[in-house]
Design a protein around this nucleic acid. Structure first.
Lengths: 129, 129
DNA sequence: ATGGGGGTTCCCGCAACTGGAAGGTCAAGA
DNA sequence: TCTTGACCTTCCAGTTGCGGGAACCCCCAT
């Protein structure tokens, strides 16, 4: 059994985050006599799993689904794949958006001489007409 | 002078958003006898400016800075460029993060056969060890 | 008069935490 | 033994940029 500080170190998550995950039911540590949370090895695996899933950009709700599938020995890999594919296309969308912004903004920044004069193509583009 | 609905159409922003922008001091329409907001042509320009800046991903605080520079006839284009460049590198960072996620997740999705069997490389990768 | 389509304020909620206050607990050193 | 400091606890507020909805007012057409 580990304290929250210990498991925070091992899982690579802030203690605050772990408390939050408990609050929303992603992990359910036991409690010691003193009221302190007591985390098992299993809790550690769960939290490390969550940390990785979050690092891949999965939402908390996706994470909830993923740990449930992880827990379920009889899951179909197709269910996991579906979640991952949906997230993947979400990521692709975001990248496309950002790239489009980046392109427009990149041109504008290039066109701006960036000196003391007030004349600025960036503002000109943002302004209508 | 235009009502909020009218200007919302013209600026391409929801009325809710415009009220919010007023609340945080990005725009300051007059008020009619009846308490209704009355927007001038100038307000419309401002809101259209804001809509474009937001579409390029600038934060509200950046927008505040940008409209202030826009208002300031004596601005230096360097000041505008600085803001835009900072945002640009922020965008680049995000794109890099997303691409890295996309790559990892893409491999995992490819490796997952996605059938009825429980064996799944995605879960395997998320799990520690 | 009444109905519908404006407008107004106010407050809650979202995601996923983070920071801070106020207080309980525990191990170690003087 | 006392105290100090590092832990732990709960709870509350704030973050970003709005959106939803309640409760209410206003104006125009029928």
């Amino acid at each position: 059994m580990m304290s929250i500080g210990e498991i925070a170190d091992k899982a690579g998550l802030p203690a605050k985050t772990i408390r939050y995950y408990e609050e929303i039911g992603l992990v359910a540590p036991q409690r010691g006599e003193n009221g302190y949370r007591a985390f098992s090895q299993n809790d550690l695996h769960r939290l490390a799993f969550l940390a990785r899933a979050r690092a891949l950009g999965f939402s908390i709700e996706d994470c909830r689904t993923l740990v449930a599938l992880w827990d379920d020995e009889g899951r179909a890999s197709a269910d996991v794949k579906r979640v991952a594919e949906a997230h993947l296309s979400h990521i692709d969308e975001k990248i496309a958006q950002l790239r489009s912004m980046r392109e427009t903004l990149g041109h504008l920044v290039e066109a701006c001489h960036g000196d003391e004069r007030p004349d600025c193509p960036i503002l000109k583009d943002l302004a209508p007409e």
